[in-house]
Amino acid sequence: MKWTFENGIPIYLQILGRLRTEIASGAYPPGVKLPAVRELALEAGVNPNTMQRAFAELERDGLVYTQRTSGRFVTEDAEVLKNLRKTLSEDVIEEMCTRLMHLGMSREEILSAVQEWAGEASGKAKNM
């Protein structure tokens, strides 16, 4: 997928967000080797130092680890990955709820709308 960047947000944070999502979703599965900084910088069309900074943050958060000679790998720690999904999903929920409240919905209305959606979604899944 092509890399695009939004205005006004540091580019390393946008890269970090994308890589975190790719790790959470399993696009980069546990234990897999990440591309080299230089390679990914070239693909994304960004400065290698910016990519390096995003990688350093991933490493600090324990999402990737470095093996001295062979490169960087995605963590295999299920707990860390679970926490990552939780953090990312909280962001999505917060954003969604904020937008729904802007539309004038109350907390109760949002909750029942989500339940309704989940019911419909599982109904659709059964019919598939």
């Binding site: 205005n7 006004g8 947000i9 540091p10 580019i11 390393y12 944070l13 910016t50 900074r53």
Partner: peptide, 15 residues
Amino acid sequence: NTDALRERTGMSVDN
């Protein structure tokens, strides 16, 4: 630093 500028101003360097 360009990322520091984006963070400080909330704008792209271009804007």
